[in-house]
Nucleic acid binder design. Sequence first.
DNA 1: CTCCAGGCTTTAG
DNA 2: CTAAAGCATGGA
Length: 274
Amino acid sequence: MQIIECDAAYFNPRDVLECGQIFRFIPFKEGYKVFSADKACYVHTQKDRTLIECEDGDYFYNFFDLGRDYAAIIEKAKSFDVPLLTRGATLGAGLRLLNQSAEEMIYSFIISQNNNIPRIKGIIERICEKLGEEREFMGEKYHAFPSSAALAAQGAPFYKQLGAGYRDNYLAATSARIAAEGIEMLYPLPTPQLKKQLTTYTGIGPKVADCISLFGFGRRESFPVDTWIEKLYREDFGGTLKDRNKINAYFCNLFGEDAGYMQQYLFYAKRENM
DNA sequence: CTCCAGGCTTTAG
DNA sequence: CTAAAGCATGGA
């Protein structure tokens, strides 16, 4: 077992996990067990340090984006002088953007569309339980996220039965395509072309493509526009555009290469008062 | 009962 | 091209 340690001021496990970028984690002892692809870790905070316990330190160092200077990101966020963004970057100083498995993001965010977070988590959990390889971490069993081949071996009725609703065929069709083609050709693409390619998969539109690009391919210039962003665009930016693609262009132009981080702070601040 | 959730596909104009 | 209906499910 390895232990990675870092400054808790820029790594609050609750903020990082509960902000909708990841769906596989459970409260455990003083912190959380976190699952990604076929790996697991235990993350918790002691005083001013956040500790990550795991078997694969290199994987989770990258996963939690530990090479990034978040103090600089937060300063940049405040420099835009937008009240909601400054509030998000202040209250959410412990936020981080995760570097997750691209395939896991593809299926997870297909499920996320027009859905709520508790239900998304349940559907993904049941899929892993049924199709993911069994592993063990800290004396307890868990299931890896299934391979595309394992997902493709099931049809739409299987996903419907797990509660995926009308997204059943999206999962069946896209897993079949990826099992046949792979996704290696996507990694070298420039971000605009990556987004365009992602939207050619069944069940992936512009918003889901931005989430996959941001969380699964490390494209920090991506800015997903969902119902929350649309709401804060109107209420906090005085925006009048109604087309989400245009709202996306507005924010990408405003925030540039770090738009994804700004999106997380805004999302965080807007969701705080629920 | 209706409304909504990290929207997409299909169809109509 | 844009606009709107239809879509499963579960909780508020």
